[in-house]
Design a protein around this nucleic acid. Structure first.
Lengths: 149, 149
DNA sequence: CACGATTAGATTGCGCGCAACCTAATTCCG
DNA sequence: CGGAATTAGGTTGCGCGCAATCTAATCGTG
């Protein structure tokens, strides 16, 4: 049975498994993203924009579960790098819409090699990977729901 | 079949599922850790020390997969808060050993409520949680191994 | 229409997380 | 023994990630 001592065992904790796997992913991506001159969160923002261009800052933040304190400076860095353009919405001037530049759109081709590299590293575990992804998505929504109590 | 377009779909990516679940955990822990006056990484460091006191900075960093640029300032903050003592090893003066103070040891009792709160949030998923944890540990080691290429 | 409430985005401050680099202590080897 | 190589820890710089706060634009209600 689980004693009080066991409750605080680092290696039995799901939170630490998620936390350390997340950092391992970032480390794995680092050298691959260096060749695109992107950080990992910047890469995620590009993924969102490659799927749907012209999103507002808020919509992009909701897609990544990040708030404006994170997204605003990140998008300004992408703008400084010439990958996106930030433009006030004319209908609602509170909103700022993010548009990929030609360079930003072109970067997509180079980015294709990255998921291939991940696929290679996790070769032979395709079903397990897909199942894990779904469980993690479920975990995230359970945690966000429970965070309100 | 997976086309090129699908390769870059955010919601099909394991990396993003891990990344966003990790942040969801941090958000979930935040209000619980506020009452202990600890950040999440500081809580992890305490978990390690509650298991084994007197570790070197390096050993503690290896346990958490963090380097000295992260652990040194984190441990200095725990020291400033009165939870740990940092002491040069007499045998090998390159090393600094970390010892819990009485206050640091006492905090352990208050921390017990936290895994209980997590257990409640994930109630009814105990086996799935344990399986996911093992898969994530495996994922982390696969990524760290593949990161070398 | 007017005015309080809400909303979008920006800003500041702080704690990670890591690369790059530095110093001091120890080890390795001729 | 003595100098090169290695190791532990610390420092700096930068990009997140988020709480708290601010401003400006829009909405909602009387």
């Amino acid at each position: 049975m689980a004693k009080a001592a066991d409750l605080l065992q680092l290696d039995s904790m799901l939170c630490f498994a998620v936390y350390s796997a997340s950092h391992a992913f970032t480390r794995f991506y680092k050298p691959r993203l260096d060749s695109l001159d992107l950080t990992y969160p910047q890469y995620l923002a590009c993924l969102v924009l490659w799927e749907q261009d012209g999103l507002t800052v808020k919509a992009l933040g909701e897609r990544l579960f990040l708030d404006s304190g994170t997204t605003t400076p990140l998008l300004k860095r992408l703008e400084a790098r010439g990958l996106v353009r930030r433009q006030r919405d004319e209908r609602d001037e509170r909103q700022v819409r993010i548009y990929l530049t030609e360079e930003g759109q072109a970067l997509r081709e180079k980015a294709l090699s990255i998921p291939l590299s991940v696929g290679k590293a996790l070769e032979g575990n395709a079903e397990a990977v897909a199942a894990m992804r779904r469980e993690l998505q479920n975990l995230r929504s359970m945690l966000d729901a429970a965070a309100l109590d």
